[in-house]
């Protein structure tokens, strides 16, 4: 996928430049951007490491497990088909908390394990179960407390106040998550009659 996307972007760019006569800009654009990428990363390392360092404390002190447990009643509402003490619930909780705290690398393994456990409960193995649809939509509505990456990128482009977007970002992500849950719940209700 990314292979075609990448080649596509470069070829379309060079082709357009041939028509618009901006070939020398393209050369400089490529060189400048490559340079810029390294500068960006060097500055963002600081913010990123600050966050991962903080989260390591949260992990070691058991705060993340504690929060996952607190999530149970809410997950029961989202996933009525999954037994509350099933392994799937634990992985879903870990995935949600990791996403909320902006720990993408911890979220994905837990999310894949959750899918594996949900598949065990699924009567039709090639068809997504109700719980899977809800889990995926919830996961992709990207509920997040602080978008650390965005703040890091903003600071590397010399923003006067990189973190000013936390509050508005939280608002927007709550809207998207709520919209996702409501839509799925409505679809589920309408299909209640013809279950599975």
């Amino acid at each position: 996928m990314l292979n075609y996307l990448w080649v596509g972007m470069i070829f379309i760019g060079i082709l357009t430049a041939a028509f618009t006569g901006r070939m020398e800009y393209v050369t400089n654009g490529a060189i400048d951007s490559a340079k810029e990428a390294v500068n960006t990363i060097i500055i963002m390392v600081g913010v990123l490491s600050m966050w991962t360092g903080l989260m390591k404390i949260a992990e070691k002190s058991g705060l993340i497990d504690y929060l996952s447990n607190k999530l149970k009643p809410f997950l029961k509402f989202l996933f009525p088909d999954v037994p509350p003490n099933h392994k799937a619930m634990k992985y879903i909780a870990t995935n949600v908390i990791a996403n909320v705290l902006g720990l993408g690398w911890a979220a994905t393994p837990a999310g894949l394990m959750a899918m594996k456990e949900l598949q065990k409960l699924n009567p039709e193995k090639d068809r997504a179960s109700r719980a899977m649809c809800m889990f995926m939509v919830f996961n992709m509505s990207s509920l997040q407390l602080v978008s650390v990456n965005i703040i890091a990128y903003r600071s590397s482009f010399n923003s006067a106040n990189p973190s000013e977007i936390i509050g508005p970002g939280l608002f927007a992500t709550l809207v998207s998550t709520a919209a996702g849950i409501i839509v799925i719940k409505i679809i589920e209700m309408r299909r209640e009659k013809c279950r599975y």
């Binding site: 193995k125 068809r127 995926m136 998207s176 709520a178 839509v183 679809i187």
Partner: peptide, 25 residues
């Protein structure tokens, strides 16, 4: 990535649901 990991091909209303959530965002 997620659906392929458990070999699910019929994703039902996942895609429209996710797109609506993103659009609302």
């Amino acid at each position: 990535v997620y659906f392929m990991s458990v070999k699910i091909t019929k994703t039902r209303y996942t895609l429209p649901g996710a797109l609506i959530a993103n659009f609302a965002g």
